[in-house]
């Protein structure tokens, strides 16, 4: 145990000495990695907010089951309870003809005056059915539509075919683009770390040869380089996070102003604490992987 601790202390000292010895190249690597992580983080924030907007839009989109005139209020409430038990349904709102009339101008953008002129409310009662966030696929919407049509008293179901595929495509695109950009930037970060560690390794080849002659194990010789990669990645993560926060604070008013048309979607959010930690941890992990790749490429390391 004492021996392992002593070797661990040596490894830490060697990593710190290595970073000091190649401070300029390490600093350049940290800045380059921070820029890559900054871009990845910026896309992460943008995609997170876009996904949030799309999710919130999805929350407002419903399937409408129009009821026959014979369905009274008690039956409507009972039907709503049955509809809520359908697989994939998040919640159901029973809408009376009066409520439908009141919402008419908001939903259609058309004044209710002509309807009121008729003197009789022509709008039917309905059930407004919201799908669960994970179940907003065209297939699930169709399954729910069929289930709703099977309920007694349901005259017609508007399944929202016009919005479900578009919504799904938008969400898939946002997530796919985020993943692709994240992968490209992760590879860029790996290459940066691997190149820096390779340079550091070449600069310390004499030291490693002497260490090997003195009986240093392969692990003892490699660990300082892995730690250097880890430290560089973590520093880059912290730097990227600080820069992102600064840019976010500066850009937020303009972004929110430009999204104001989305009403309640206009509140732009930064990373949660867990996401911020994940960015730094991700940087550290990429640094470690880059260093490991660099050492693996040199079989003598």
């Amino acid at each position: 145990m004492r021996r392992a601790l002593a070797i661990a202390r040596y490894v830490l000292r060697a990593a710190a000495r290595g970073l000091r010895a190649s401070a300029a190249s390490a600093a350049i690597a940290v800045i380059a990695m921070a820029l890559a992580l900054l871009l990845a983080g910026a896309f992460g924030i943008a995609i997170g907010n876009m996904a949030g907007v799309v999710e919130r839009v999805g929350d407002r989109l419903t399937l409408s089951a129009y009821l026959t005139p014979e369905v009274d209020e008690a039956a409507r409430t009972a039907l709503a309870a049955r509809a809520a038990r359908i697989e994939g349904v998040q919640d159901v709102e029973a809408v009376s003809p009066e409520m439908a009339l009141a919402r008419f101008p908001e939903r259609t953008g058309v004044s209710a005056a002509p309807v009121e002129l008729v003197g009789e409310n022509p709008l039917p009662a309905s059930l407004e059915v919201r799908l669960r966030a994970g179940d907003r696929s065209p297939e699930q919407a169709e399954r729910v539509r069929l289930a709703l049509e099977g309920l007694p008293g349901v005259a017609e179901v508007s399944a929202g075919e016009d919005w479900v595929p578009g919504y799904t495509r938008a969400l898939d695109f946002v997530r796919g683009a985020g993943l692709a950009i994240g992968l490209v930037l992760a590879v860029a970060t790996l290459v940066i770390v691997a190149s820096t560690i390779r340079l550091a390794y070449a600069a310390r080849r004499d030291e490693l040869r002497i260490l090997a002659l003195m009986g240093a194990s392969r692990t003892t010789m490699r660990l300082p380089f892995l730690l250097e990669g880890l430290a560089q990645g973590a520093c880059a993560g912290v730097l990227a996070l600080l820069l992102l926060r600064l840019l976010f604070v500066l850009a937020r008013p303009a972004v929110e102003a430009s999204l104001a048309f989305l009403a309640d979607s206009a509140a732009v959010r930064f990373f949660s604490p867990a996401e911020a930690v994940a960015l730094v941890a991700g940087g550290a992990l990429l640094g470690l992987l880059g260093a490991a790749l660099s050492l693996a490429a040199d079989r003598r390391a």
């Binding site: 021996r3 002593a6 070797i7 202390r9 000495r17 030291e207 002497i210 003892t220």
Partner: peptide, 23 residues
């Protein structure tokens, strides 16, 4: 074969560091 980035003591100590001899 002394390492220029280390002082005399550190150069000698290297042989004990790789053996895991405590500080």
């Amino acid at each position: 074969e002394l390492l220029p980035r280390m002082n005399v003591e550190e150069n000698v100590r290297l042989a004990l560091d790789v053996r895991g001899v405590p500080g």
